[in-house]
């Protein structure tokens, strides 16, 4: 005899939505984490405060949202040589919509090498480093345990960067931190100690990931929260690069001749008949 499998969990949820976030109650208002969006947010909070609330469930103070907005500016370069931005530019070549172009660039940022996803690693590195430091582990040992050796140099997320040495965005954000009256917390203090060690021994410095990961750790965010808040981090730079090529003649962005692609595969051969 067949026994009916218990599907109560799914049966109870058919045709219903239970939101832990909020929603639109038609005729009553739009609610978000207990706030009325039209009464409590519009005209009263910044957009970035709402972005951070939606990502973390916590409404930050205005100055923290302003700090985050400044960070978004740091990652909004209109330079199409950057990988995600080049995807925006190539979308301009094929005349996609601006939304499609920007979304494609954002997907590209979901990368192990750059963009918001690397902040997960950055936050985990500095939070683990602080735990080690509190247990008495020296900076030199923290560096050894946090990174891999590439040649003689340790590679740690948050320090050094591709293409250039140094990072002009760190200094810009340090000014913002000061202007908005934030203190240097224990994660950021340790991040500077790591930077000093790497600078003296390997001529490498902290990058924007390292600075932001340490600062936001001091503000009490987890790695996943930092990633979620930054889900659209590079959007504006991608849009700019899309617009640049969209307004030019198609096929004029880095045009390639056939021999600009090097073929390294099999030599010409005859197609065998299908057996």
């Amino acid at each position: 005899m067949n026994t009916k499998i218990n599907t109560d969990y799914w049966d109870q949820r058919r045709g219903k939505i239970t939101s832990s976030k909020g929603g639109w109650k038609i005729g009553q208002g739009v609610f978000n984490h207990g706030y009325s969006m039209m009464d409590d947010f519009v005209g009263k909070t910044s957009y970035m405060q709402v972005v951070m609330l939606n990502a973390t469930g916590r409404l930050p103070e205005r100055n923290l949202a302003d700090w985050m907005e400044a960070f978004f500016i740091c990652l909004s370069w209109p330079d199409p040589r950057i990988w995600c931005n080049q995807i925006g530019a190539l979308n301009g070549e094929t005349h996609t919509s601006a939304t499609a172009a920007t979304s494609a660039g954002l997907l590209a940022m979901d990368s192990r090498a750059y963009g918001a996803r690397t902040l997960i690693d950055g936050v985990n590195v500095i939070q683990k480093a602080l735990e080690q430091s509190k247990q008495g582990v020296l900076v030199e040992e923290i560096v050894k345990s946090a990174g891999q050796l590439v040649g003689a140099k340790p590679t740690i997320t948050g320090y050094a960067r591709p293409i250039a040495k140094g990072d002009e965005r760190v200094g810009a954000m340090e000014k913002v931190t000061e202007q908005l009256s934030f203190d240097i917390g224990e994660h950021l203090k340790l991040a500077y100690e790591i930077e000093n060690y790497l600078s003296k021994n390997f001529n490498e410095s902290m990058n924007i990931n390292g600075y932001v990961s340490a600062f936001l750790s001091d503000q009490g965010f987890t790695a996943e929260e930092v990633y979620r808040m930054n889900a659209t981090l590079v959007a504006s730079g991608v849009t700019a690069c899309y617009v640049d090529t969209r307004e030019k003649v198609p096929n004029s962005f880095l045009p390639l001749r056939c021999d600009d692609i090097v073929y390294e595969g099999k030599s010409v051969r005859v197609v065998p008949e299908k057996c």
Binding site: I163, G171, E174, V262, G265
Partner: peptide, 21 residues
């Protein structure tokens, strides 16, 4: 500060993209 000294790395990038496909 170390991070404020920004200079190009001497990484060598390919002049052309290659494919085996």
């Amino acid at each position: 500060k170390p991070s404020s000294l920004v200079s190009k790395r001497d990484d060598v990038y390919a002049q052309r993209t290659a494919t085996r496909i």
